[in-house]
Simulated scan of single mutants.
Amino acid sequence: MTAIKTTKIIYWTSTVIIFLFEGVAPALTSHTEVAVEGIRHLGYPDYFRVLLTVFKVLGALALILPMVKGRVKEWAYAGFGVVMISACVSHTAVDGFGGQSIFPLIIFVILITSYLQYHKLIDKHTD
């Protein structure tokens, strides 16, 4: 297998995982009592849950759609990075360091993988 093919596989696998966890899942579950209570438990107002869901869905679409390029994709990566770090900090501050704090860090590592592979791909196309 060629290096570019491996890069594409890693990129698309990591990006689809981000899309599912940060775009599809919030779109389908943000209105549930578990999600509402989860945001409330962390001390955030309910409108923040709605705002976060809208931006997560838009960011996930920006990452998954191939025609989205450049700054829009960069802002989506940056936004998700802030969300993952903030989720870890919020859960740690409220409940102590544990599974709820670790999960956003796992997603953050997958996000970084997607970001690095994205740049490998665009660097190959600009050579």
Rank of each mutant, 00 (worst) to 15 (best):
T2A: 14
T2Y: 08
K5Q: 12
T7W: 00
I9N: 06
I9A: 09
I9L: 12
I9K: 06
I9T: 11
Y11C: 01
W12L: 11
T13H: 02
T13F: 06
T13A: 05
S14Y: 08
V16M: 00
V16A: 10
V16D: 00
A25N: 13
P26G: 07
A27R: 00
L28S: 05
S30W: 15
H31W: 10
H31I: 06
H31P: 01
E33K: 10
V34K: 10
A35V: 00
E37I: 02
G38D: 00
L42Y: 11
G43L: 04
Y44N: 12
D46F: 09
Y47S: 07
F48W: 12
F48S: 10
R49M: 08
R49C: 09
V50Y: 04
V50Q: 04
L51N: 11
L52A: 15
F55Y: 00
V57S: 05
L61C: 11
L61R: 03
L61S: 00
A62E: 03
L63W: 10
L63C: 09
I64E: 11
P66G: 13
M67S: 13
K69C: 05
K69A: 04
G70V: 07
K73S: 12
K73W: 14
Y77Q: 14
Y77L: 15
Y77M: 14
G79H: 11
G79P: 02
G81D: 04
V83Y: 12
M84R: 04
M84H: 12
M84A: 08
M84T: 04
I85R: 05
A87R: 02
A87M: 12
C88T: 14
V89H: 10
H91F: 06
H91C: 01
T92D: 01
T92N: 01
A93S: 15
A93T: 14
A93D: 15
G98D: 14
G98A: 13
G98P: 10
G99Y: 08
I102A: 09
I102Q: 04
F103Y: 05
I106N: 02
I106L: 13
I106T: 08
I107M: 13
V109M: 08
V109F: 07
I110L: 02
L111D: 09
T113R: 05
S114L: 08
Y115A: 15
Y115H: 15
K120I: 02
K120C: 12
L121A: 00
I122T: 15
I122V: 15
I122K: 09
T126D: 13
D127T: 13
